[in-house]
């Protein structure tokens, strides 16, 4: 179990996170928050890349900084803007990282083969990486994070740049992997979260705003989300959430504390609604 107690992070006098308490057990945790909320900062602390200004991060009761190599050996990490050697092939790159992850050569070769197959890159395995597309590089990154069969898998915006097919593929992969490990993934893509996450962690103003299963988070807006084709019906203090085209009419979706069932149709809230509502004052 990975747990954070009273974590604070400041850059100079700028406070990014304050008093964060979290516990990660088995399953997929999605960090869902707008740009600049501190997702990457939180992830970098979990990967020991930066240190908290206050508080402790414990793996099974031991400080991860003190555990050092024994913590890193159960850690898989995909950074948000992940770097690679442009002139290396995916296979070379993975074998190299395998060695740095202290796998013996045979194991590194076997796992590299298997992982390249898993992320659908067997065909370009020996091409130089500077000739690969952005989505392919992202898949090399995902494969890389899985090399040491990590118990804690941390992915910073893993689905950025993936096509729909790969995205689905990735979701299935994560669902399978999360059976017996902790998967922490940051994202802004709400549809990814709804399908794979067991828990959604939302950060607001440097604190944890929500840490619940998706369905439970949606319940916060139960009965307060409406749809109407009459945009005039959406006025202050209603909060306009989204608009979509339905044939020739524009359907507006909005939030209201007051009962609007005479003007509009009450609908089931989804995560996107909650996201827009939660961060309404941070346009």
């Amino acid at each position: 179990m990975l747990s954070l107690s009273n974590i604070t992070k400041k850059y100079g006098s700028f406070r990014v996170l304050e008093g964060v308490d979290l516990e990660f057990t088995r399953g997929v945790y999605a960090l869902l928050a707008p740009n600049g909320a501190g997702k990457t900062t939180l992830i970098k602390m979990l990967t020991t890349l930066i240190h908290p200004s206050g508080g402790q991060i414990l793996w099974n009761g031991d400080d991860i900084v003190h555990l050092g190599a024994s913590y890193r050996s159960i850690l898989g990490y995909l950074p948000q803007d992940f770097g690679y050697y442009k002139n290396q092939s995916p296979r070379k790159f993975l074998e190299y990282l395998g060695a740095v992850k202290a796998l013996d050569r045979r194991t590194a070769i076997i796992r590299t083969d298997r992982l390249l197959d898993l992320v659908g890159l067997s065909e370009v395995a020996d091409k130089k990486m500077r000739k690969l597309s952005g989505g392919m590089i992202q898949r090399v990154g995902i494969a890389q994070a899985l090399l040491n069969e990590p118990k804690v898998l941390i992915l910073d915006e893993p689905t950025a740049g993936l096509d729909p097919q790969q995205r689905v593929h990735f979701r299935n992969l994560i669902a399978r992997l999360s059976q017996d490990r902790i998967v922490i993934c940051s994202t802004h893509i709400v549809s990814d979260v709804e399908t794979i996450a067991n828990h959604v962690v939302m950060i607001k103003d440097g604190a944890i705003w929500a840490n619940d299963p998706p369905a439970q988070i949606c319940r916060r807006l139960e009965g307060k989300v409406y749809e109407t084709s009459d945009i005039q019906a959406v006025y202050e203090p209603h909060l306009l959430l989204t608009q979509r085209q339905d044939g020739t009419t524009t359907v507006s979706r909005f939030f209201s504390e007051a009962d609007c069932s005479l003007l509009a149709t009450r609908v089931e809230p989804n995560l996107e609604d909650v996201f827009l509502w939660a961060y309404r004052d941070q346009a």
């Binding site: 890349l49 190599a69 050996s73 990490y77 770097g83 992850k101 202290a102």
Partner: peptide, 15 residues
């Protein structure tokens, strides 16, 4: 340390 591989490298068994 080139090409931002540093972050990944630093989270591996051997830093």
């Amino acid at each position: 340390r080139a090409s931002r591989v540093y972050d990944i490298r630093q989270t591996c068994y051997f830093t």
